[in-house]
Amino acid sequence: GVPGVSPVTESATTLGVRSWIPPPFAVQPGSVALLDTGLGDVISATWRDNSLWIAGGEACIPPGDGTTRSCLRVIEIRTDSSSVRQDTTFGAAGNYYSFPAVSPDGAGNAFVVFTASSASEFAGVRVTGRAAGDPLNTLQASTLLRAGGGAETSFRMGDYSGVALDPADASKVWVTAEYIRSTSPSDDWGTWIGQLTVPPPPPNVSLFLTLNTHTVKAGDLVQVNVAASNPGGAAVLDLYFVIVVPAEGAASLGCASGLALAFFDSGFSPFLTCSSAPPQTFPPLIQNVTIPGGLVLALPPSPFFSFVWPAAAPPGTYSFALFATPPGAFGDGSINQGDVMAVGLDSLTF
Score class of each variant (00 low, 15 high):
residue 241 F to K: 02
residue 112 V to S: 02
residue 232 G to H: 02
residue 297 L to D: 10
residue 128 T to H: 00
residue 304 F to R: 05
residue 58 E to I: 07
residue 139 L to T: 04
residue 177 A to T: 12
residue 304 F to I: 08
residue 310 P to K: 07
residue 208 F to K: 10
residue 167 P to F: 01
residue 322 L to A: 10
residue 274 C to P: 09
residue 87 D to T: 11
residue 289 V to P: 01
residue 203 P to N: 09
residue 263 F to N: 05
residue 296 V to H: 07
residue 309 W to H: 15
residue 242 V to T: 08
residue 249 G to C: 13
residue 25 F to E: 15
residue 56 G to L: 02
residue 162 G to L: 07
residue 243 I to A: 04
residue 331 G to I: 08
residue 211 L to C: 09
residue 303 P to N: 11
residue 176 T to R: 03
residue 5 V to F: 05
residue 77 I to H: 02
residue 114 F to D: 02
residue 283 P to C: 05
residue 74 V to E: 03
residue 289 V to F: 07
residue 100 P to E: 03
residue 170 A to E: 15
residue 78 R to V: 01
residue 123 A to F: 02
residue 53 W to N: 00
residue 54 I to Y: 01
residue 197 T to G: 13
residue 227 A to F: 00
residue 45 A to Q: 03
residue 81 S to N: 11
residue 257 S to I: 10
residue 243 I to K: 02
residue 334 S to G: 15
residue 174 W to R: 11
residue 102 V to S: 04
residue 210 T to F: 04
residue 153 T to P: 05
residue 57 G to R: 03
residue 244 V to L: 13
residue 198 V to E: 02
residue 244 V to R: 09
residue 232 G to T: 06
residue 133 G to A: 09
residue 91 G to C: 09
residue 237 L to W: 01
residue 85 R to S: 15
residue 305 F to E: 04
residue 63 P to Q: 13
residue 169 D to S: 11
residue 273 T to C: 15
residue 182 S to V: 10
residue 44 S to H: 02
residue 280 Q to I: 08
residue 253 L to K: 05
residue 199 P to C: 09
residue 210 T to Q: 13
residue 347 S to I: 00
residue 206 S to D: 13
residue 116 A to D: 07
residue 143 T to W: 11
residue 295 L to W: 01
residue 225 N to Y: 03
residue 110 A to Y: 01
residue 237 L to H: 00
residue 86 Q to Y: 04
residue 282 F to C: 08
residue 60 C to I: 06
residue 344 G to V: 09
residue 155 F to E: 12
residue 257 S to V: 13
residue 24 P to Q: 04
residue 342 A to Q: 03
residue 279 P to I: 12
residue 258 G to V: 10
residue 308 V to E: 14
residue 75 I to T: 15
residue 212 N to K: 07
residue 271 F to D: 13
residue 53 W to G: 00
residue 122 F to E: 01
residue 161 S to C: 15
residue 289 V to A: 15
residue 320 F to N: 05
residue 13 T to D: 15
residue 48 R to I: 01
residue 284 P to E: 03
residue 175 V to G: 11
residue 316 G to P: 14
residue 163 V to E: 00
residue 42 V to F: 05
residue 211 L to K: 04
residue 320 F to P: 00
residue 5 V to Q: 14
residue 255 C to L: 13
residue 9 T to C: 12
residue 272 L to P: 09
residue 27 V to W: 00
residue 157 M to T: 09
residue 148 G to Y: 03
residue 207 L to W: 01
residue 256 A to M: 12
residue 107 A to Y: 04
residue 344 G to P: 15
